[in-house]
Amino acid sequence: MKLSISSFLIVLVLWLSCCSSSDETADPNIGMEEEEMQETTDGVAQVTNVSVSGTDDQYTFSVTISSPDLGCNQYANWWEVIDLDGNLLYRRILGHSHVEEQPFTRSGGPVSISADTEVYIRAHMNTTSYGSRVFRGTVSSGFIPENLSIEFAKDLEEAEPLHTGCAF
């Protein structure tokens, strides 16, 4: 069977996009377009993609964040899963800046929720607090980008666990 050059290129692009994705077992959910991401990262950390694997009460979240990290003086220091009432369900502490790795993805868990529990996933910056670009959804239906007031459940900035410093 002969393939034309254009058919070969299409197959190659599809194969590369498949192979370059994370090795998570769950399908990745919808992410933000690059232009949209750039519009929302002015001085704050923003969630740009979320994928989930696991089972009820044992989910692992992989969260992609875009942030204007400059080093330990300015960096995204955690991402968290909260319910729609503003209760902290899980927080993934980020122990260092990601100056040369933007956007970056970090996984965390287990997150003890059911597949139908609706949650927000948001990021926090050590200097500017929460970003307004979050993802909202459920494990069963997926997560989509949404804007959330940076004042929503802002008191969680004082809730444990808290970051204890920046490695680099």
Rank of each mutant, 00 (worst) to 15 (best):
T127I: 07
V139I: 09
V50G: 04
E24L: 12
S140T: 08
C166M: 12
S129G: 15
T164I: 13
D23W: 12
M1P: 02
K2E: 13
G165D: 13
D42H: 01
G71Y: 14
C18D: 03
L9M: 14
M32C: 10
E160H: 05
E80C: 04
T128C: 02
V44R: 04
T60G: 02
E101P: 00
V47R: 01
G54S: 05
N147L: 15
N147I: 15
V99I: 14
F135G: 02
T117S: 13
S132M: 09
Q74S: 14
L88W: 07
N87M: 04
A167N: 14
H96Y: 07
R136T: 14
V119Y: 00
I93R: 00
S4W: 06
I113D: 01
Y130F: 14
E160A: 14
D56P: 15
L12I: 11
P68L: 03
L162E: 10
V111S: 02
S149N: 07
I65A: 07
S114E: 12
V52C: 06
A153I: 08
R106W: 09
P145L: 11
C72I: 13
T40S: 11
N29Y: 15
C19H: 08
T117E: 09
S17L: 13
H96N: 03
G137T: 06
W79G: 05
W78M: 11
S149C: 05
L12K: 00
E80I: 07
T164A: 04
G142Q: 10
D116H: 09
V44G: 00
T127A: 09
P68Y: 01
Q74N: 15
S62H: 11
